[in-house]
Design a protein around this nucleic acid. Structure first.
Lengths: 208, 208
DNA sequence: ACATAACTGGACTGCGTGGTCCAATCGGGC
DNA sequence: GCCCGATTGGACCACGCAGTCCAGTTATGT
């Protein structure tokens, strides 16, 4: 019953609805966001919404896809440019600055949705798990680069490091959002960076 | 209008309601839990609920207090016994085992509530921030003990380390819950422990 | 120009929700 | 036994919610 838009006009309507929903969900959570709110913000009507989405769950899943495209793919280019400790620190700085600019009010949209929906909406949970996985894969690619440059021990498990780094970032964002204090995020990132640095090849032992 | 219970019977009724609410909120989130659900599970009536709580917000705040008493104060005794790396690892192991036993379905009740309520309910946000703070304080006390035993450099900022450790634990729980995979938590904890160990006094340099 | 499909507006519905109200019951003190 | 406040049961209400429906309008292809 719900279909992809077949015309340019339809595509834009759908996009407007998803973008409005994403903004509201980011600020209030999925459950707390009503469809009427979304439609008011998107300046659209009920029939438009149900023309493109089967129900609210489907809309939320579209929001997840939208946020994934925005957040994860958005950081992809930043991550792709990192090949030194300075580059890593610079990325961390932008994360803290971004939270500070937003008064620590949103944290990570993916993380918030994950916390809310993981035990409620199985399909959404899987989508979010995939988002985290692609994010972790990007982190891992960056860590591989650092390893290839000799900044990290060759035998380090970069996949596991990507997971732990992502975890620390998410946790830091959660604490910062809860306490409205960007320093919580800063502390977390300092630890994440410090751990990676501690995995540098031992200085006294030359490579064979 | 809402009052403290004045009799033993009242105290037990209130407790039953809060416990039922805590269980449901832990599984479904606060917004998704209805008062009727709570009352059915607690085998209580509307008037009983509104006899002790002003409104749903007040009930949720009581749930936060209940979970804080359960989770934070619950780990306090475990944390209090840690004075070595082995002790730390043992605590980490119990965390992973606990998640595994629950099929990674709940994560941390405090963390989940924080993610959901931080930008919606200001009073709840402050309560949760306080919960995190007392949790961090307990972690810090443990880290101070490790430092006093010479396992961590004397100049280490244990307050910041407590924050980062807490962040990594929370993030690991979130990733594990989202992917239904306890290994995500394991990876995060390995990193948290590894970072702390990297702050050991330099072996080649004796204390003055 | 016409047929056909895509899209849109908004009234409408049924239901679950948080919250109110009051009469009934309980139980300890006197 | 009697009193009085603490407690309880549950009917009731107003309302916001997700979801339905259909008549109307706009675009597309030929």
């Amino acid at each position: 019953m719900p279909e992809e838009p077949k015309t340019e006009r339809g595509r834009r309507t759908r996009e407007r609805i998803v973008a409005a929903a994403a903004g509201l969900v980011e600020r209030q959570g999925a459950e707390a966001t009503s469809l009427d709110q979304v439609l008011a913000e998107a300046r659209a009507s009920k029939s438009q919404l149900y023309h493109y989405f089967a129900d609210k769950h489907a809309l939320i899943r579209a929001v997840i896809a939208w946020q994934t495209a925005t957040v994860v793919d958005g950081t992809a280019e930043q991550l792709a440019g990192i090949d030194s400790w300075d580059g890593l620190d610079a990325w961390f700085d932008t994360l803290v600055a971004h939270q500070q600019a937003l008064d620590c009010r949103v944290g990570c949209p993916i993380g918030s949705l994950a916390a809310e929906l993981a035990d409620t909406d199985e399909a959404a949970r899987q989508d979010l798990a995939r988002s985290f996985d692609t994010w972790a894969a990007q982190l891992r690619a960056m860590l591989d680069r650092l390893r290839d440059r000799g900044l990290i021990r060759p035998d380090a498990d970069t996949a596991a490091l990507a997971q732990s780094t992502l975890a620390t970032v998410q946790g830091g964002l959660l604490l910062a959002k809860t306490s409205r204090d960007p320093q919580r995020l800063r502390a977390a990132l300092t630890a994440a960076g410090g751990y990676l640095r501690s995995l540098a090849p031992l200085p006294g032992r030359a490579a064979p």
